[in-house]
């Protein structure tokens, strides 16, 4: 029954042959993006702090790093890491890192991490700069340590400003991760190209398009939830009716008898 309905929209024969592969592709894309986004976030926060530090060398280094990675295409950076650093086999064997640069997967992870770190550094810098000076001074007047001031006062407020651009960056990462398919990684894009080269059925590209749009939409929804949670203390004054989440609203309207 469900299959017949599905058959109206998509080619069932193709689905049987490539359906599971596409799901694997989605998983690979998700892993690639999640890992590099989180690692890139840690590195980006450090770079953002370096950009704001009083040390001239740190400021200069982070500035040059950010300029390089934001000014050149991710594709060129990926090839530079995979083919460029990968060509120095002797050197990597000597330092015992050849297992890392031999694998396209690690190279892609590294390239995406370094790239997104540059973008996230700018986001964190903007967020930290947006926290009013008085907040820091008040915390210092309370006798807090610098580290505690940052962790308890500055960072949470910076995150409110940074959250939305971070969501945009995550979506950009999902899209950019399609490039990984060019260095033999079977992410969603890689799986699509493989299946297309075997079947010459253009419908496969449309599947990929729909799957990417679904991933992006999920992130947008997730981010809306996160944003509501992070800013919940700001809405105290206004008496707002409690809004059910989108999931419970959808299930409710789906379960309603005559909706």
């Amino acid at each position: 029954m469900l299959r017949d309905l599905l058959g109206l929209v998509i080619n069932l024969d193709l689905l049987d042959r490539y359906g599971w592969r596409f799901l694997d592709g989605v998983v690979v894309t998700a892993q690639l993006v999640t890992i590099s986004f989180i690692l890139g976030g840690v590195l980006g926060l450090l770079l953002g702090l370096a950009r704001l530090s009083e040390n001239l060398a740190l400021r200069w280094f982070s500035g040059a790093y950010i300029y390089f990675f934001r000014g050149s295409p991710l594709l060129a950076q990926l090839f530079l890491l995979y083919y460029g650093l990968g060509s120095l086999r002797g050197f990597w064997t000597d330092v015992g890192l050849w297992w890392f640069f031999r694998e396209a997967w690690y190279c892609a992870l590294l390239a995406f991490t370094l790239n997104t770190a540059a973008y996230q550094a700018e986001i964190f810098r903007g967020g930290i700069q947006a926290v009013p000076r008085g907040q820091r001074e008040a915390a210092a007047a309370l006798g807090m340590h610098n580290a505690i001031i940052f962790a308890k006062v500055v960072f949470p407020q910076a995150m409110i400003v940074a959250l939305r651009p971070l969501g945009n960056e995550l979506i950009l990462m999902v899209k950019a991760s399609a490039i990984a398919s060019l260095v033999t990684i079977y992410d969603l894009m890689g799986v699509t190209k493989l299946a297309f080269s075997r079947s010459y059925n253009f419908e496969l590209y449309l599947w990929a398009a729909v799957l990417y749009l679904i991933i992006v939409e999920c992130i947008r929804r997730l981010w809306a939830v996160l944003e509501r949670r992070l800013t919940r203390h700001l809405k105290m004054g206004e008496s707002q009716p409690v809004q059910a989440g989108w999931l419970s609203r959808m299930t409710k309207s789906a379960l309603k008898p005559n909706a």
Partner: peptide, 8 residues
């Protein structure tokens, strides 16, 4: 077109 990867 904002959601699709440019490569795709």
């Amino acid at each position: 077109f904002r959601g699709l990867p440019e490569l795709l």
